[in-house]
Structures are given as C-alpha cells and as structure tokens.
C-alpha cells in the first residue's frame, strides 16, 4: 500500500535579527487573515498556527462546519509539538507565585495541555478516528507523518492530517528559533504512485524512527549509528540521485553530519547515490515543525527523496518520498 501526500500547508516565521527581544514575535502572523475575525481569542499561538496550516492543507475555511458521520470517523489528526505549553506554563506558574490559583484565567486553562492544538484542529475539522499528539523534541513533526502512515496501513483511518506546531519560548531557550506550523494531508491509495497525478504532491514509500544511544565514551555508539543509517538508506532502495535532506538543530550538528555521511555511504554500498553528497545539514530552526517543512519542500521538488530529522538527544526519523520500491517500514 502506498500513502499519498495530497496537499500541504504551512505558516512559518522567517529568521529575524538576533538582537530582537521577542516582544513582537507574533507580528509575522495575522490570525484574522487565517481564522476570521472571531473564535480564536483564547486559543494559544501554537493552536492558531496549527489551525491555519491545517485549514490550508485541507483547502477549507476556518468557519466551515466540521465533518460528521462516517467520513469523520475515518479521518484522523496527528500533531507533533515540543513547546505547545511552554509559554502558558510559565505564565501560570508566575501567576500561582503571585496571585495564587484565583489568578488563573479559566479561558486559558485548556492551553495547558500538550494535546490542545491538535484537539482544536480535530474539533474544527471533525476528526473522530483519532487525535494524537507526539512530543519528542525536534523529531515529533516527522514522527507525526510516520504515525499517520502506520495508522493508514492498519486501517484506523482513510485520511489523516499529519501536522506540527510550535511557539518558540521566550529567553535563551528560543534563541535563533522561530514559530511555525505545517500540515500534510495523507490518504491511502492502492494505485501506483504518480507524482503528476491530480491532487497528489508525492508518494510516501517508507519511514523509520530510531534512537542512537551514546557509548561508554559519551559519543554516539558507532555500530548503532551505522545500523540505523543503513536502515534509512534502505528506504531509498539503491536509487540514484536521491535528494537527501538531514535536518537538525545547532546542538545536533555533529550528530546530523554523522547521520548524513553514514546514509550516503550505505546508499553507495547498495549501488545508489545522493544528488549532493557533500551537502550541509539543514538547520532545524522551527523546533518540531522543521522536519515537516523540509518534507513539504522536498515533496514539491519531486523525485526520489529522503528527509531525516535528528535531535541532539539521539532521536532520528526518516521519511522516503517516491522511491522506486514497494512500501517498506522498519
């Protein structure tokens, strides 16, 4: 079974000067332009971004009624995020320390749950198959795609929005990182993949998630690294001119480079090749959304591609697009 990416949507803050203090951080996004004039006041920024990207991918207006009946029960949402609650948690903790429990606004309480952006998207669109939120730092966005593909394979839904949203926290934790949300619509299709088919951006031919532990010396275990990257390369099935994108935050630059080198080597051993084997690791500036943004860019480029999202903790998730092999999941 092949899974098709039928549409995509994204809203992303572009890198801003480093001296910015973050106070005007949301100026890049106008909620009214995406969500209309009412109904979003009490939604967190990450939720607003997610609704905007999700609606864009689904080609719907925010005020359209949600799905109902059987189509709703066959439609799911899976969302990756790492900072969905960071801002509101900080604000509430400060409120507790100063004015106490009574100072907390009930309207803001739902924002204090990692699943609320995804749940609001599910409510808005009528997704009743499932609404799952994944929260591994950095890789959660691409994990959402892997989760959606698996759920489509096991028949838990016929159509899934795989999405990610993050609002960068204030202060040092947010340095050189930016707000964003992205979404892809995935559906099952037993027909052969055609990248030129009407309404199809790309086919997903495989995906994998791994963790590379550190050895006793504190470095990534080389055997585990080689084994995991071998599995990533196998997703491309020895294809030539594979577009390989490895995306990771600054703190994972070394790990990302090692992953890239190992995937290139494994592909070569299988008779395949990478289009730009000396390419740099792409900087993941949009937190857990980064990998999904790379996937969308690659899907729009066409051809055989591999997107690998890596975190400084050692997680990696890879998704293969349009590879000339049958679907494989390891």
């Amino acid at each position: 079974m092949t899974v098709l990416i039928t549409a995509a949507g994204a809203v992303a803050e572009e890198p801003r000067p480093a001296e910015g203090d973050g106070t005007g951080a949301a100026a890049w996004f106008d909620p009214a332009a995406h969500l209309g004039r009412r109904g979003w006041k009490y939604l967190s920024p990450a939720t607003r971004y997610l609704l905007a990207a999700g609606n864009q991918a689904l080609g719907r207006r925010h005020d359209e009624p949600p799905l109902t009946g059987a189509p709703a029960e066959r439609f799911g949402v899976v969302t990756g995020t790492q900072y969905a609650i960071a801002g509101v948690h900080r604000r509430m903790d400060d409120t507790l320390a100063t004015t106490g429990v009574q100072g907390i606004s009930p309207a803001e309480v739902p924002a204090f749950s990692m699943n609320t952006p995804g749940s609001q998207l599910a409510i808005s669109t009528g997704a009743r198959a499932f609404s799952v939120t994944l929260t591994n730092p950095v890789t959660a966005g691409l994990e959402a795609v892997q989760f959606a593909v698996t759920a489509l394979r096991t028949g838990r839904a016929d159509r899934v929005v795989a999405a990610a949203a993050d609002q960068v926290p204030a202060g040092d934790d947010g340095r050189d990182r930016y707000d964003a949300a992205a979404a892809v619509v995935l559906s099952r299709d037993p027909a052969p993949v055609s990248g030129e088919g009407v309404g199809v951006l790309a086919g997903i031919t495989g995906g994998i998630s791994r963790f590379v532990p550190r050895g006793a010396d504190g470095d990534r275990d080389p055997a585990a690294l080689a084994a995991s990257c071998g599995r990533v390369a196998a997703l491309a099935g020895g294809a030539r001119n594979v577009r390989l994108v490895v995306s990771g935050p600054a703190a994972a630059a070394e790990f990302g480079g090692a992953v890239r080198d190992a995937v290139v080597e494994s592909l070569a051993e299988a008779g395949g090749s990478v289009r730009d084997p000396a390419g740099a690791v792409s900087r993941a500036r949009h937190c857990a959304v980064s990998g999904l943004l790379e996937l969308i860019a690659l899907a729009r480029t066409g051809g055989t591609g591999l997107v690998v999202s890596v975190s400084e903790s050692g997680h990696l998730t890879a998704i293969a697009l349009d590879a000339p092999v049958q679907s494989e999941f390891h």
């Binding site: 749950s113 609404s131 994944l134 994998i208 963790f211």
Partner: peptide, 23 residues
C-alpha cells in the same frame, strides 16, 4: 519532554521511539 530520550539512552533502546501526550 525528553523522557523518551532519557529512557532510550539509559537502557540502550534503539528502535522506534515516540512520546505520546494525548492528555
């Protein structure tokens, strides 16, 4: 939300690794 990373590192669990936060 690095619990999965802490556990995977502690036990050397190298396969698929997800954190689910559905409340």
């Amino acid at each position: 939300h690095r619990v999965a990373a802490v556990l995977a590192g502690r036990f050397g669990i190298g396969g698929p690794s997800q954190t689910l936060s559905t409340a």
